Simulated assay, not measured.
Amino acid sequence: MEERVFGRSGQQASVVGLGTWQLGADWGDVDDKEALAVLEAAAETGVTFFDTADVYGDGRSEQTIAAFLRGRPDLQLLVATKMGRRVDQIPENYVLDNFRAWNDRSRRNLGVDRLDLVQLHCPPTPVYSTDEVFDALETLVAEERIAAYGVSVETCAEALTAIARPNVASVQIILNPFRMKPLAEVLPAAREAGVGIIARVPLASGLLSGKYTKDTVFAENDHRTFNRHGAAFDQGETFSGVDFETGVEAAGEFSALAPEGFTPTQLALRWIIQQPGVTSVIPGARSPEQARANAAAAALPELSAETLTAIRELYDRRIKDQVESRW
């Protein structure tokens, strides 16, 4: 599979990575055996980039990746984790002592001495403008606790603030055919600065797969039930912030745009891969079959100008007014 480089850190990631939130929690139940099978299937198809976080299953996702890697010492993978969401979301918690403690826990969970890439996990907005925060991250690099650092953001404004920091290696942001605002300023700024872009929530929490109807019911412990209106965390993380009924209708139109040989999911992933400035897209997978199908999007033909135009028209007509003013 094609690999792309985080310009500032020199690290490489497969253009389709694997997001592992669903292997920890908040997407219904995934047992350990199935989780390991998903990781194996992704690696077999050429995925070399796994994204996790210390809060996914309170460490379960990190521990599952560690268990997988112990059995596959031959693999050369870039594993990114995140920190900061296990405490109250106030800027005062983003200090060096806490960073060291969180870092120690993730290193134990992942079974490594040094973490490849650590991202601040959608912290309060003032954190991105606080020099002491980035001084603390530089200290972690100097202490060889981490090789590089980045941020995960909710808004385009946060992304642009982070990109202006000289040593931020990556920005993780929601980008998909139902969330196009980053195309205007964030991706061009990242390209110019050499900052990697990790595209998350690429399927709008599954909407873009075209599998849901207005009557679809999700498990009680699935964020698509309990966070639909932003009750637990930022609403934009669930269905990209799109109203579910609107999203289902728009997803039906989106599915009809898939060229021959593409599933709707692969259409969404291929659209993201083609955006200039994207380093890696990180769909989740709950089964080996999903992991393989996601990875296959990297080898599909580029989308035509006609298809790209039709996707943009759908976004402008059905989605744009719901999301662009908020994120």
Rank of each mutant, 00 (worst) to 15 (best):
I311C: 05
H121I: 06
G206K: 08
V141L: 11
G210V: 14
A291W: 01
R105T: 15
I272R: 02
N176M: 06
G196W: 08
N93M: 09
E158H: 11
G210A: 15
A190R: 00
F244H: 08
H223D: 10
P126A: 02
R108P: 03
D29E: 13
R292D: 01
V87R: 07
N167F: 14
E313I: 13
F6W: 12
V112S: 12
N176S: 13
E260V: 14
R100H: 05
I65P: 05
I90N: 03
L140G: 03
G71W: 15
A80S: 14
D32L: 12
G71I: 14
L75Q: 06
I311V: 13
I319G: 05
A142L: 13
D97G: 02
N93A: 04
V5L: 09
F6Q: 11
Q63Y: 11
S205K: 09
Q275H: 11
E143T: 14
A147D: 14
R72E: 09
A148K: 10
G19D: 08
S280I: 08
G247A: 12
T64V: 15
I174Y: 06
G24M: 05
I272M: 06
A293Y: 01
T139D: 07
Y56P: 02
I198S: 02
A101E: 09
A37P: 00
E62A: 14
K320Q: 13
P182Q: 01
T265E: 10
E249M: 15
P73Y: 10
G19A: 11
A35W: 01
G19F: 03
A285S: 07
Q63R: 15
P301S: 08
A25R: 05
T48A: 00
Q12K: 14
D135Y: 04
S209I: 13
A148Q: 09
R228T: 12
A189G: 03
A35Y: 03
V16W: 04
F218Y: 11
R228V: 14
L314K: 09
T279A: 12
L75T: 00
C156D: 10
R270M: 11
L120S: 01
D58Y: 13
D97L: 01
A67R: 15
T130F: 03
G206M: 12
G284N: 05
E132C: 06
W327T: 02
V242P: 09
E306H: 08
E62R: 11
I197K: 03
P259Q: 10
D113K: 04
R107C: 10
Y56N: 05
R200H: 12
R107W: 07
A250L: 09
R191S: 04
E289Y: 02
A147R: 14
Q22N: 13
G247Q: 07
A164M: 12
E185D: 15
A41E: 00
E289H: 10
A101W: 01
N109D: 10
E237C: 13
V168E: 03
I163L: 11
S280N: 04
S287L: 07
L183Y: 04
D104C: 08
S325I: 00
F99H: 02
N93L: 06
P259C: 12
C122M: 11
R317Q: 09
R145L: 15
S304T: 13
V281P: 01
D31A: 07
A101D: 06
L175H: 06
D222H: 09
Q119W: 00
